[in-house]
Design a protein around this nucleic acid. Structure first.
Lengths: 190, 190
DNA sequence: GTCTATAAGATGATAGAC
DNA sequence: GTCTATCATCTTATAGAC
């Protein structure tokens, strides 16, 4: 097994564990058991748990960039793009036991090394910036009604969707995510 | 020191630790050190950590009921009541290092005993029910514009505020909570 | 109610062989 | 790259004295 493959599989399993249980509630042993190696071997790829967390956030941010680029490429109207952004969260909620990896990290921020803060911050900020840009473009095109600041609306949507994922998993229903979408409709539709 | 006082102090400190670090990231030792007793003594008051969690949620739900009753008693318009509901979250965000206790529990739900799920569910549901009732009353009184379903709006507001607390602490600013309030304004104000 | 003592297991991490 | 072996520490929890 090459290093790249093992490291990648470790990240896959670790991401799943963080999203399902939280960063403080899984161990190198949990990881080792699933991947099929020993805990000592994990330290070869990720010397400390903080290194693992950082790698997870780096990869997750890249995946976000790819997802947003794909939306921009495939959907041309602001309303359709916003709907697809919500779909990203709906898909996570549909797993039934996962929340956003960045949301999970943010929820555990009080116990994470300070070095990880900027990465969590950047992920949230990237989401907000894309939404702000998309909303502003939609308004210029006359698709989306004017109202409050686009950035304010973007920030609120990110908070709402992150909260909805936590809410949804806690009550065992994806309805909170759908509620966010329905409640936001008047702000995006004339 | 009477049992009641020690149990109460344990709950106070435990609540702070859960809100700041999460349920899985504090130990009986952390608790013992702050309260000034030994870990074995904590087990006298709360035999297991699950018992402690349950007591925390019970008390936190009672505090919510009291807060909502106080709002209903002191504020007579729906808009003023909604603003005060948001203020409850703003106060938590203002601490800089805390989120909602129920939100923290919800974020850790994947590792909590199943017995706690109904309590988390009930807290969220109580918040939504109160908001729904307040919004509906405001609409009947002509204070709040008609729009989507009141329950949908209520659910989204709870998700948004819970998410905003996590968001706010992660970026070290209370702005996300203010953004939720500003972005929601058009839905509550004609 | 609180203590000391202790258990039984988990945790992140390191050293060194292969 | 992965292993065995080991470490020092922490974790929840119990038994029994005071």
């Amino acid at each position: 097994m090459t290093s790249a493959n093992t490291a990648e599989r470790l990240l896959d399993v670790a991401a799943s564990l963080v999203q399902r249980r939280g960063f403080n509630a899984f161990s190198y042993r949990d990881l080792a058991d699933v991947v099929g190696i020993k805990t000592a071997s994990i330290h070869y790829h990720f010397p400390t748990k903080a290194d693992l967390a950082s790698a997870l956030l780096t990869r997750y941010s890249e995946q976000l960039d790819e997802a947003l680029a794909e939306i921009d490429r495939e959907s041309r109207t602001a309303r359709k793009r916003l709907a697809r952004f919500v779909d990203l969260y709906r898909e996570t909620a549909a797993t039934g036991d996962r929340i956003c990896l960045c949301g999970a990290m943010a929820a555990d921020i009080g116990t994470l090394p300070d070095a990880l803060r900027p990465q969590v911050h950047a992920y949230l900020d990237r989401s907000i910036a894309w939404l702000e840009q998309t909303i502003s473009a939609g308004r210029r095109a006359g698709e989306i009604p004017s109202g409050g600041g686009a950035r304010t609306l973007a920030s609120m949507l990110v908070s709402a969707l992150q909260g909805a994922l936590i809410h949804a998993r806690a009550i065992g229903s994806t309805e909170p995510v759908n509620a966010v979408e329905r409640a936001m409709k008047p702000l995006f539709k004339s």
